[in-house]
Amino acid sequence: MTRRKVILAGGAAVAAVGVGGSIAANAFAGETDTADRKSGAESCYRLTSETTEGPYYIDADKLRRDITEDKEGIPMVLRLKVIDAETCKPLRNAAVDIWHCDALGIYSGYESLSTGGGGTPPSGAPSGAPTDQPSGAPTGAPPGGGGGGGHEEPTDDERYLRGTWKTDKHGRVEFRTVFPGWYRGRAVHIHTKVHVDGKWTDAGYEGGHTCHTGQFFFEEAAVIASGKVAPYSTSTTERTTLTEDTIYDQSGTTGGLLKLTYGKGRIAKGVIGSITMAVAPDETHDSTDTQPGASASTAS
């Protein structure tokens, strides 16, 4: 058993506020998700893939659903459901962490270590965004350091695009954020952890254990569409595609592939991402260094 404590920022949980965009604005309206409409047809017998925690996890210190802060990007609502893989029953009051990079591939808490980039290219580099951006594979090896499950200590006090919230009686939890960007060596993704058997107090969430550590992934069409929208379009960082990613196990929803909803040709207005996670609440999965691919040094 491990002890975790979430400190409420400002002494109160942050209620969701508007992030703009007609799609994202309605995403907290409490619609019934697809899994509920399937009348028992949930794929709850296959555990959602465990993945490496990555080097940039910070034991959750922001209890909130809106993790955007002042970061620019395409508005996104992440709608999650957590169920017991054996019984199919929803996990109530589980603590769900999410964290991801910003539109230019930078992680809060690790700005000096992040490998993303954008804006004005360095001297001698081609000007403007690549004409086929963000398609194509990296031309060099991914950067070393911070790969696998190795943890890096934070280098700054920023905490944007990080948050923890509890599941309701239906096992649901929703976050407001922005569509993540990309950085060298990894496909676009969001990190997650699910904690159970702890206690919610006025101070936050304490005790319990981590029953799932995973990542969510994005279909290529949506990533390419996002690359046409500022600030993503200013990125000068080469991109790894979903099929080239060494963490994603290519198993679709089981591997963390999100279902994305957005208007065709209007992704800038907002995106809804949804998925049901089937977990084993009695097991402990803090992290893992086991990856589908051969590269254990890929940035995570």
Rank of each mutant, 00 (worst) to 15 (best):
R3M: 14
L8W: 02
L8Q: 06
G10F: 08
G11E: 10
A12D: 14
A13G: 15
G18W: 10
V19W: 01
S22N: 13
I23D: 13
A25K: 13
F28V: 06
F28H: 11
A29Y: 01
G30M: 02
G30N: 11
E31I: 12
T34H: 15
T34Y: 14
D36S: 13
D36H: 05
K38M: 10
S39R: 12
G40Y: 01
A41E: 10
S43F: 03
C44P: 04
Y45P: 03
T51P: 07
T52H: 05
E53T: 14
Y56D: 04
Y57H: 07
I58S: 08
D61E: 13
L63G: 01
R64K: 14
R65E: 13
D66K: 04
T68M: 09
D70F: 12
K71N: 13
P75F: 04
V77K: 02
V77C: 00
R79W: 10
L80S: 10
V82K: 03
I83S: 06
A85V: 04
E86V: 11
R92S: 13
N93Q: 15
A94M: 02
A95C: 15
W99Q: 01
W99T: 01
H100T: 06
C101E: 15
D102Y: 00
Y107H: 09
S108I: 06
G109R: 06
S112R: 15
S112I: 15
G116I: 00
G117W: 03
P121K: 03
P121L: 05
P126C: 10
P126H: 12
P126F: 12
P126L: 12
G128T: 08
G128D: 07
P130C: 08
D132V: 08
T139A: 11
A141M: 11
A141Y: 11
P142W: 00
P143T: 04
P143Q: 04
G150C: 14
D156R: 14
D157A: 15
E158Y: 08
E158K: 14
R159V: 11
R159G: 04
G163R: 02
T164L: 12
D168E: 08
V173F: 05
F175L: 08
R176M: 07
T177F: 07
T177M: 09
F179P: 00
G181I: 07
G181R: 05
R184E: 07
V188T: 14
H189M: 10
H191W: 01
V196D: 01
V196E: 00
G198D: 04
W200A: 13
T201M: 04
D202W: 10
Y205D: 08
G208P: 00
H212I: 07
T213P: 04
G214N: 02
F218K: 03
F218N: 01
A221W: 08
A225F: 01
G227S: 10
V229Y: 03
A230C: 09
A230S: 15
P231N: 02
S233P: 06
S233T: 15
T234N: 02
S235F: 08
R239L: 12
L242S: 00
L242I: 06
Y248P: 00
S251Q: 13
G252R: 03
T253E: 13
T254E: 06
T254L: 01
T254K: 08
L257S: 05
L257Y: 06
L258N: 05
Y262D: 04
R266F: 09
A268G: 08
G270I: 03
G270C: 05
S274T: 06
T276W: 05
A280G: 05
P281Y: 08
T284F: 08
D286W: 09
D289L: 09
A296W: 13
